[in-house]
Amino acid sequence: MRWFWLTFFIVCPIAAVVFCVIAPGMDWWFPSEAGSPLGERIDSLFNLILYIVTGTFIGTQIALVYVLWKSSKKDDERAWFSHGSHNLEVIWTIVPAGILLFIALYQMDVWAEYRVVSKFPKEARKAPVAEVMARQFEWRIRYPEPGRILQIQQQPTDLYAVNELIVPAAKPVMIYLKTQDVQHSFFLPELRVKQDAVPGQIIPVWFEATEPGEYVLVCAELCGWGHYKMGARVVALAEEQFEAAMEELAEEQSDDGFADAGDSDDE
């Protein structure tokens, strides 16, 4: 039994090292590679923490195995009882505190850029693309008319969509996040964005999709029996296509059904 535990506690840190080394390369922790510049920085923070935690884990495992190994050799010796060591306690308080402080300071600029409105990229802050209203169980979206700025209040010229947020790609964009009923959470796993929508609040959120494409948008806050239905998509389009899509939406929304009939008569 002794040898079993000994091997067990040696194998664990070795396995941990192996997993830690191959995991980031295998995309095991994340849903695909980060699709945004800030997402990449968040990932590298995550990886840093992963390495620190792995190092700590290995250190403590080595200490544990050492103790097991040493005491396993002495069958007849009784264990001694310790009332604590002041020096040791100081060390194991200061070292982790130092590591935590380092992480706290090191991630601050990423955190600020992600959450603090005044640190948002200026071009995103100037022109929010849309208001995203979460509700049980869908995402209702309000865009300003092309050429106008989104207002907090509804405007007669606003454009509306549901479950599909179109944004320009390769530039930072900002949305206003709201909820109509309970708490929801605006989650773009590929872009590493997650922000709760809180009743009564208008929360600015910014992100940037590096590549044009479709990204998953889901609700990450259990919001009721239909929580699983709140799947939607974010479509990032190249600037020109984005403008064209907005024009198309504007045209669709002002459809009076009359021109259609005229067209089909002509054909």
Binding site: E138, N163, G226, M230, G231, R233
Partner: peptide, 10 residues
């Protein structure tokens, strides 16, 4: 909108 019928756009 205004009812529980959600969108099944996807």
């Amino acid at each position: 909108p205004g009812t529980y019928m959600p969108s099944f756009l996807l």
